[in-house]
Amino acid sequence: MTLVMQVRLSRYLRLYDSASKPPTGPAPAPVLTKVRKSWGMSALAISKHMLRSSITNELNETDQKRQPKEVLSDLVVSCGAMTALLITRDGHLMSEGGETGYLDTTAMAALVAGMFSATREVARIVGEQQFSILLQQGEKRHIHISLVLGSAMLIVVFEDYQRIGLVRHQARKAGLTLAELLRKETEMTKPELAPELSMPAFKEYALDLIDRIFKPN
């Protein structure tokens, strides 16, 4: 099954013109994360504490004000990749960075989410909770996929396989920033996020459109 999906994915990547590869940037210095051990906490609490600590320690104020699209665009530049996508676990495209004209991002999101979910089942079969990183190696193009907060996935498409270490490092860094941005968004309430969205009017228009599109003659 994975093989079939890899073939499909490679179909969506085939049209890229390598001459227009995005500029590459210098490798940044490695980031050190300090985690303070908290006595008396449960294993789960410690693990959540470690995650939160590592996120806050590595994010500066500028990072926290950015939008996912900017983070993805910077990621593409910093590791010389072609494209970076952020998708939900159930296959919705959330944001994109870099060159995307050569691929069907909607189909890509649906396929990768399915592939990642299938891999999670495989992980459970062999006694793991999940595999947090997936790497698909092709002849010219490769895909690095990593989990963000367990509910989203970061996809990086790149060409030069020798950059895999850099891709992995930058994807991890970007993943932490994105995790923090997503966490903040989930903490915000609906009126803060969408003050203009009126539910009765939305439903009325949506039902009218559905009637026009699907109503049998």
């Binding site: 203009e196 969205l197 939305f202 228009y205 459109l209 599109i213």
Partner: peptide, 8 residues
């Protein structure tokens, strides 16, 4: 895509 409603 059914369309844009209330800006969405």
């Amino acid at each position: 895509d059914i369309g844009r409603i209330e800006g969405y």
